[in-house]
Simulated assay, not measured.
Amino acid sequence: MTDCPLCRPDKETALWSDTRCRVILVDDPDYAGFCRVIWQQHVKEMTDLTETDRGHFMAVVFAVEQALRESMHPDKINLASLGNQVPHLHWHVIPRFADDAHFPDPVWAMRKRDHRMIRTDRILLAEQLKRRLGELRQRKTGR
């Protein structure tokens, strides 16, 4: 698939990567901390991965969730793997707050309230998440 936007990253804020997957901070004004964990190769379904690769991928998703919880203290974390428009494995990891624009509904639902004033410095948040992800992965791998 040559036109896949996840195969050809453009202007991503990369937080962490290895040979199998990468973590990016999504530029969404409603959702500071919205991250995407993307499998590096074009793969359509989780069951197309080996068991080892699935385990690695999910370990990274869970590390992102943990880093977001520790950095932002959200009311909830949403994990979603949809891929209907882009059939390339990726997970959305979205910190949710009771006063966000869509809560308690999904971020893709109709807006329930006006845009919440996000008081998060994006550069500082990216640096915090990079550091936390590095620490979490280092702790898990022992390196």
Rank of each mutant, 00 (worst) to 15 (best):
F57S: 13
M58A: 02
M58K: 02
V60I: 15
V61S: 02
V61W: 06
F62H: 15
F62R: 15
V64L: 08
V64E: 11
E65W: 07
E65V: 05
Q66Y: 08
Q66E: 14
A67D: 03
A67V: 05
L68N: 02
L68M: 06
L68C: 14
R69F: 04
R69I: 01
R69N: 09
E70W: 14
E70P: 06
S71Y: 09
S71H: 08
M72C: 11
M72V: 12
M72R: 07
M72N: 08
M72K: 02
H73G: 00
H73E: 07
H73C: 09
D75L: 04
D75Y: 08
K76V: 03
K76M: 05
K76D: 09
I77Q: 03
I77R: 13
N78R: 12
L79Q: 13
L79M: 06
S81M: 09
S81F: 12
L82K: 02
G83W: 05
G83V: 02
G83L: 07
N84S: 10
Q85I: 06
Q85A: 07
Q85G: 10
V86H: 04
V86S: 02
P87H: 09
P87L: 03
P87E: 11
H88P: 02
H88D: 11
L89D: 09
H90E: 10
W91N: 08
H92Y: 11
H92A: 05
H92M: 09
V93Y: 10
I94D: 08
P95D: 02
P95E: 00
R96Y: 01
R96V: 00
R96T: 00
A98F: 04
A98E: 13
D99V: 01
D99W: 01
D99G: 01
D100P: 05
D100Y: 01
A101F: 03
H102K: 08
F103Q: 11
P104D: 04
P104V: 07
D105T: 14
P106I: 00
P106Y: 09
W108A: 09
A109C: 05
R113I: 01
R113E: 05
R113A: 08
D114H: 07
D114S: 12
D114G: 11
H115P: 05
H115S: 05
M117V: 10
I118L: 07
I118V: 15
I118W: 04
R119N: 15
T120L: 06
T120F: 02
D121R: 09
D121L: 02
R122D: 05
I123D: 15
I123P: 03
L124F: 07
L124P: 00
L124E: 15
L124N: 01
L125W: 07
L125Q: 03
L125V: 06
A126D: 06
A126I: 04
A126Y: 08
E127H: 09
E127L: 14
Q128C: 03
L129N: 04
L129M: 07
K130H: 03
R131H: 14
R131Q: 06
R131Y: 09
R132C: 00
R132I: 04
L133S: 10
L133K: 03
L133Y: 13
L133E: 05
G134S: 04
G134R: 13
G134P: 00
